[in-house]
C-alpha cells in the first residue's frame, strides 16, 4: 500500500492508483474536476488539463517536487507523495485559466442547450470561471449534424475530450467515429458521414460532458430540473437493464445510464433501453436517485432558509453538507 497526502488528507491506496482516483477515495472538495477522464474508458484523460495538481513532494524516497503541474488523472501515486489541489493558489489559478480556454470558443448557449443543468462544463465554470470574458473575436462554428437517427452532434459545444471516441472504439465493433482535422478546427466526426448504428452507441451521449452529443428523442422536450430521476430496471438481453428513468408526472421523458457522484455511468446501457422504452409499463420503478445539493435539479427545494444576522464562515455552519443533501432529497421526493 502507498501512502499519499492530498490537501492534508492522508490515505493509503494500492499501487497503480492515480492521484485522481486517490482523491476520489477521500472525496469532497479535494477531488479535482475531470472533463476528459472517464474511469470506465481506457486511455481516457490527460487532455483537458482541468485536473492539474501540484506535486509538492514526489515520494518519500525522492522528496523533490515535480517541476510542472501534473494531470492527476494520469499520474500514478508514489509512496509518500504530497499533492496540493485546492490548497495551492497556483493550481486554482491555472484551473481558472483552463476554464477560460475551454469557454472561449464555447457558444455559451446554455438557455437552449439540452445539457443545461447536468453539464459538467457548466458546473466547472460555476466553480472556477471568471465573470467576464476577455475573448472578443468570432467563435468558431460548425453545422449541426445527425450521426444516425438517435444522436445529434453540436460540434460548437464540443470541448474535444475524446470520451465519445474512446466509447465508440471500446464499446462498438466497427470503428467509424473519430476526430478529423487538427488544432482548434479539429472536430468529432464519423467516417464519411456514416451513421452510428451500433447497439451501444447511445452511451456516447452519457459520456459527453457537455451538450455536444444529445439524445434526439429528448431534444427540447423538457428541462432536466423539471424531471425526477428514478432508478428503474427491466430485464434486457443486451445490457443489465438498470437505468435512470427521468419522469415528469406519469410520463418517462428519457432514459439514461445511472450516473455516480462523479458523473460517470455505473453501467453502459443498450440503445433499446435508452431510446425505445419510454412507457411506464416497460419499467419497474425502484427508488428515487440521490440528487446532490450542487445540482440544479434541486432548485426550488431549498431548506427552509433563515436570514442569518451574522454571515458565518463556511466551517462554522451548523448544518453539514451531508445533512443538507439528505433534507433536499427528502423534500424533493416527499
Amino acid at each position: 500500500m502507498l501512502k499519499v497526502t492530498i490537501d492534508n488528507h492522508t490515505i493509503e491506496v494500492e499501487e497503480g492508483t492515480t492521484i485522481l482516483q486517490a482523491a476520489r477515495l477521500i472525496g469532497g472538495a479535494v477531488v479535482p474536476p475531470a472533463m476528459c477522464y472517464y474511469s470506465k474508458l481506457k486511455e481516457s484523460g490527460g487532455k483537458c488539463r482541468t485536473c492539474l495538481v501540484k506535486v509538492a513532494q514526489g515520494s518519500a524516497r525522492d522528496p523533490r517536487p515535480m517541476p510542472k503541474l501534473v494531470a492527476s488523472c494520469r499520474t500514478l501515486v508514489a509512496d509518500g507523495m504530497v499533492v496540493q489541489n485546492i490548497t495551492s493558489p497556483e493550481v486554482l489559478d491555472t484551473r481558472k485559466a483552463i476554464v477560460e480556454f475551454l469557454l472561449i470558443n464555447h457558444p455559451l448557449d446554455c438557455p437552449v442547450c439540452d445539457q443545461a443543468g447536468e453539464c459538467q462544463l457548466q458546473d466547472l465554470s460555476y466553480d472556477n470561471g471568471r465573470e467576464g470574458t476577455r475573448f472578443e473575436e468570432a467563435k468558431r462554428t460548425f453545422k449541426v449534424v445527425d450521426i444516425g437517427d438517435k444522436i445529434q452532434l453540436h460540434m460548437n459545444r464540443c470541448i474535444l475530450c475524446y470520451r465519445c471516441v474512446y466509447t465508440a472504439n471500446q464499446l462498438t465493433d466497427k470503428r467509424s467515429h473519430g476526430i478529423l482535422y487538427r488544432g482548434d478546427v479539429a472536430e468529432i466526426s464519423t467516417y464519411i458521414q456514416n451513421d452510428i448504428t451500433n447497439d451501444f452507441s447511445g452511451n456516447m451521449i452519457d459520456v459527453c460532458p457537455v451538450g455536444a452529443l444529445t439524445d434526439k428523442s429528448f431534444r427540447f422536450k423538457n428541462r432536466v430540473w423539471f424531471l425526477k430521476p428514478m432508478n428503474a430496471s427491466r430485464s434486457c438481453s443486451k445490457c443489465s437493464g438498470k437505468v435512470t428513468a427521468w419522469l415528469r408526472g406519469e410520463e418517462i421523458y428519457r432514459v439514461t445510464g445511472r450516473k455516480d457522484q462523479f458523473d460517470e455511468v455505473e453501467e453502459f446501457i443498450c440503445n433499446e433501453c435508452r431510446f425505445d422504452k419510454k412507457e411506464l409499463t416497460d419499467w419497474t420503478i425502484e427508488s428515487p436517485r440521490n440528487i446532490q445539493r450542487a445540482s440544479v435539479i434541486s432548485q426550488n427545494h431549498y431548506l427552509k432558509a433563515k436570514n442569518p444576522s451574522v454571515i458565518l464562515p463556511l466551517e462554522n455552519r451548523t448544518v453539514s453538507m451531508e445533512d443538507f443533501d439528505k433534507e433536499i432529497n427528502n423534500e424533493l421526493y416527499s
Binding site: 487532455k47 488539463r49 480556454f101 475551454l102 472561449i104 482548434d184 479539429a186
Partner: peptide, 8 residues
C-alpha cells in the same frame, strides 16, 4: 488540438 490550453 488534443489538450485545451494549446488548442484554444
Amino acid at each position: 488540438g488534443q489538450c485545451s490550453p494549446c488548442r484554444e
